[in-house]
Design a protein around this nucleic acid. Structure first.
Lengths: 212, 212, 212, 212
DNA sequence: CATGAATGAGACTTCATTCAT
DNA sequence: CATGAATGAAGTCTCATTCAT
């Protein structure tokens, strides 16, 4: 537990708590990914974080509070990602990145299995459901604003209903990729790229499809 | 589950065991849907099936063996569903039905949350992963055969790669609907219908898109 | 664990469950008396009962359910005791018996410390409060009926309000004896007997005091 | 707890510790009353006292040491209360006040549930038992002296034994009121007042009852 | 074939107490 | 003198699984 290595770094005492929170969150993410949401025990998480089990409760009210924090953290990441979105091609590239992250299960980003489990857990835990719904709505709105802006840049008109349909299709497709990443981890990357292009091009082709 | 047979009625002694298995599987499906995969206890399942807890172990080695059996059962259902597929419009209608079943948790089909949980579980349980991959591949092939047949019926040509892309897009979209059904259960049905039409029309519009 | 000694006696299989319930209740009473209500753990009770901790939950929903069962058991005892009450002298004798049982802490009857702790617990556990209130009301009514009957036997009239006052005084006095039994276990028995006579005689002296 | 002194103000340095002790004791009493003896945590008490949890251990050896200190403090209060007792009517009034405090949980005096819990705890903790016995005896003697003085004032003779009986009856009745206050918090105040009058009048009616 | 009582491990969570700062 | 982060033991309760009947 030397201070220099993976510990507190003994500087800036005021946000020591924040560091602990993050340490716990990171450990929890790893455990959830490795063992599944229910199989990962608090003792498990504590050990991974290198602290005692009871201490977690100084920073999080309950196991479910940890999940909520993870969801909210991801919300921020997603928002930043959308905010920095440029062209339509950029969107396609981002989706490919996302797919790779999902498939490879990097603990620092969202992992597909974890994403699915959290979604399923929302069915049974109201607080998780609320956190997810909030994140979805927030990102959805932000994304639609982006689409509108892009359309406006090309002087194209896009009616509200059509916009909503596109959002749903794109969202379902993206989330479906999470399922695909888990169930069939060995797709040819080119195939996935083509599928992503197929969807993004169709959906953002504002003019030809606005009558759908 | 006919009313006549819900006890030990001595007809057809050879597949008495098979009847018990199915009775257990049906009960398990109901419990998993209602309570979630981990929250459903063996006692729960036994009670739902109207038998004792210990008896389950005569027919299934463990709880996870039940899950596998359910997955394999679903494979059969899906194959039958695809086999009976007719026109393109029929496909869209089927998808809408599927979405409704997912959202409402019809016990006869699979429920969305359960679908997601099983998918996530595949990350941790090799046998479940194998069962799922097998089911996916089998259904995928069958579905592609259907598309080819439909195209042939209209004398349209469709190259292999394009076909695979479409399959992936459609599959991801369908599975994404499961996520949507869980995370946003209050979509306007019309919106979902429009999204489904949007995808099926685009994907099955063989001629105009074969170059994509 | 031989069957003949302190076990199931292997007869009458239908109320095996009832025997287990009683075995647990008896063990719980002992533990509560010895260690206090909160300090007595379920593991403690289980060990005393000679079973595993988890098994208790087949017979009682929770720790608090055990307390409720104890309370209800005592209600029955109290009712039977009141029902068999004869003359006024009999009442005084019964109270002396009760005091002795309280002071000596026989686990089979009510123990004073346990009585007080349960009363205190009622402040924090609604279900216990309800069970106690129910028992009190039931016994109170029964007791007042007895007083009325005794008065009628002597052709004495006793008005309702005066009756209620007496009931309260007697009840408080009895319950206060529980406190006394715990806080000063070494009273001269004659002193207690005199105090009991003092109260019972005063209270049941219908004629001279009915104007009070 | 004057508003001026709620921090480290350096006046009168010698009994700074005493102030802290009292602050902690007051907080503990509040917590015990609100949450019960076992449910009140040290963290709870510390927060109520406005200090850190660790600091409590500079002033009290353990949680149970706090309880003892509270009991000893109550002894002083009770003695003062008895010392200021005037006429027989005054006694009745005091008892009504006490009953109200019992029932309503006034933090300045003791609350009934807490009183019962501490009494029960005496069964298991010798030091608490000793503190309680000591307090009871001391107050009892003081009370009997008061009765003798009142009797003497009216030139009435009262023999020792009769005096002891009265003391026991009154004490049991008072303590029984604590039980009543917890188990039946909704008594008509008039009923309680009548019961108290009934007891005090009977017991202090030196002449007519001295033969009992 | 069938039961369901019994087990034992392990889940989440709380809390009195200590100790580096 | 004071803090509050940290621990570790213990608490209640659940549940997959076994086995005597």
């Amino acid at each position: 537990m030397s201070a220099r290595l993976n510990d507190t770094e003994a500087c800036d005492p005021k946000d020591r708590g924040q560091q602990q929170r993050e340490r716990i969150l990171y450990a929890a993410k790893r455990c959830f990914i490795d063992n599944g949401f229910h199989a990962a025990s608090m003792a498990n998480i504590a050990e991974t974080a290198g602290i005692s089990a009871g201490l977690i409760y100084r920073y999080f009210e309950s196991k479910s509070a940890i999940v909520q924090a993870i969801i909210e953290g991801q919300l921020v990441e997603r928002q930043e990602s959308i905010a920095s979105l440029q062209s339509e091609q950029d969107l396609a590239e981002r989706l490919q990145e996302l797919y790779r992250a999902w498939r490879d299960g990097d603990a620092s980003v969202m992992n597909a299995a974890l994403f699915l489990e959290m979604t399923a857990e929302a069915t049974r835990d109201e607080r998780i459901a609320a956190a997810l719904a909030n994140a979805d709505r927030s990102c959805g709105d932000q994304f639609m604003a982006w689409v509108r802006k892009r359309a406006g840049a090309r002087a194209a008109f896009v009616d509200e209903h059509s916009l909503r349909v596109r959002e749903l299709v794109l969202l379902a497709f993206i989330e479906g990729l999470a399922v695909r990443a888990v169930r069939e981890p060995d797709y040819d990357p080119e195939l996935v790229a083509a599928a992503i292009r197929c969807v993004t091009e169709t959906l953002l082709d504002v003019d030809s499809r606005s009558a759908a």
